[in-house]
Design a protein around this nucleic acid. Structure first.
Length: 459
DNA sequence: TTTTGAGTTGTTCGA
DNA sequence: GTCGAACAACTCAAA
């Protein structure tokens, strides 16, 4: 059981720490703020609006994370109070129930989260909703150009962000928090999912991070694009749910490891893009690109399904799509390859692919996902030049040169050795249970370039 | 205001 | 096999 902190008068009113996507106890600035004012009740709200936009694997992963957080709290004499409902009802109700003096949160900069927090703050009336910290190394809005406007290009943002620096990790020893336990709803059973999910929770985050620092980090710059070697950090689900704070990681990197630091910065970059342009979650960042001609109708729907199931006949694409279904996760290089294929080979709108990713990724983060897709589609910040169309065969040969990645996820191709697996149709006897390529990449590449040129011709 | 250099992740073709 | 050029034009950031 946690001891009452000696310097805290017992008369201090409690406060609520409302967890959202910061599901940890270490390096948690808002928790420390709350704890410094008296006893703390740990709350998580099961918000149907958010759950409705979350696919089964991500929801399952969230529930597991919540169970891990609850277990961590219990080992410190607390417990996670889970309440099902609308935050603007649930949060004030709990405040009233325990006579809380304040509600503490990590700031949420997403379009929905920001609006939700405004409503909750209004519903709380006199009781303040106090934001301390955010899920980002540097909070959106902090890194601006000299003229006070936000960056739209990554590299200058990265320079300014590096110079800006970040705070030291908050000294949040959960043993020093006095918890006030309140009844709540049970954490629901995991929704059914076929995906095999990684370990959830703060301890798993720290272990994964430690293992990556010992094994993968040294070679990260060299092999991060190699899905066959599978040596990336796998930290994305933990960053998504805040079982670790990026600042904790940056401090461990000690200013070195530029390649990995840039990846953390991309997350901050897209977070601030979405903060400054909230509609960019669904609208084209480059409005001209709205005039792009996409395929529609039944044929397009069927093509989409073929892509989603991983039956395109392009091995690297199919391997990626099958990994997504199997693990709720996909290697980043392969995300770009499958995205390019959907947009530029199948001529389908990027929003369809983005939605599919959000339905299946356990790390599905609105800012990263939508802007990653917009980048590939050439509609976003720093968009790829029009002529940059990935060739799924050469990408496979280049980044999965052993062919191990394809063979792992596409069992029908396991008999083909080495990089030859990327062109099964050149085999004397192509596997009968693997489909032929659904399109001629050469033809569709030119078609994609034509459609892009049509846009500039109209201007 | 104007100018200048640069912009995550590519591919193809011809020498 | 390797190499460099071409592939549009535009917007952004900073001086």
């Amino acid at each position: 059981m946690a001891e009452q902190h000696p310097s805290e008068p017992a008369s201090e009113p409690p406060s609520v720490l409302w967890f959202r996507r910061d599901l940890r106890l270490g390096d948690h600035a808002a928790l420390m703020t709350a704890a410094s004012h008296g006893p703390v009740t740990a709350l998580f709200v099961l918000d149907d609006t958010l759950l409705a936009s979350s696919g089964g694997p991500r929801t399952a992963y969230l529930f597991r994370t919540l169970r891990a957080l609850d277990a961590d709290l219990r080992s410190h004499g607390g417990a996670l109070t889970v309440r099902h409902g609308t935050p603007q009802d649930v949060v004030p109700a709990l405040v009233q129930e325990i006579g809380a003096a304040a509600v503490h949160v990590s700031a949420d900069f997403g379009p929905y989260g920001a609006r939700r927090d405004e409503r909750v703050a209004a519903a709380l009336g006199e009781v303040p909703l106090v934001p301390t910290g955010s899920p980002y190394a540097v909070a959106p809005g902090r890194v601006l150009k000299a003229d006070g406007t936000p960056y739209k290009v990554f590299t200058p943002f990265y320079r300014a962000w590096s110079e800006h620096g970040w705070r030291r990790p908050a000294d949040s020893d959960p043993a020093r928090v006095t918890w006030l336990v309140v009844d709540g709803d049970a954490i629901p059973d995991d929704p059914a999912t076929d995906a095999e999910l990684p370990e959830a929770g703060e301890a798993a985050a720290l272990e994964t991070w430690k293992a990556f620092q010992e094994n993968g980090l040294r070679h990260y710059a060299k092999i991060r694009n190699r899905p066959d070697l599978d040596q990336t950090s796998r930290m994305s689900p933990h960053l998504k749910w805040g079982t670790i704070h990026p600042r904790t990681m940056l401090v461990d990197l000690e200013g070195g490891n530029d390649a990995y630091r840039r990846q953390i910065c991309w997350r901050d970059f897209y977070g601030q893009v979405l903060h400054h342009w909230p509609s960019s979650a669904h609208d084209y960042f480059k409005p001209d690109m709205k005039r792009m001609r996409y395929d529609g109708g039944k044929h397009a729907d069927e093509a989409f399904e073929t892509w989603a199931k991983g039956e395109t006949g392009f091995p690297i694409v199919d391997a990626g799509m099958r990994q997504l279904l199997a693990e709720g996760w996909m290697h980043n290089r392969v995300r770009m390859i499958v995205a390019s294929f959907l947009v530029k080979d199948l001529h389908l709108e990027w929003t369809r692919g983005a939605r599919h990713f959000m339905d299946h990724l356990i790390d599905g983060d609105l800012a990263n996902n939508q802007h990653g897709w917009q980048w590939t589609a050439g509609t976003g910040t720093d968009a790829a030049p029009y002529f940059r169309v990935f060739n799924p065969v050469s990408q496979g040969e280049k980044f999965d040169p052993t062919g191990d990645y394809v063979r792992r996820w596409v069992p029908q191709l396991r008999a083909i050795p080495g990089a030859a697996v990327h062109q099964p149709w050149t085999q004397d006897e192509p596997p009968a249970d693997y489909p032929p390529p659904m399109v001629d990449h050469k033809v569709e590449r030119l078609e994609a370039l034509d459609r892009l040129k049509a846009i500039s011709r109209e201007t």
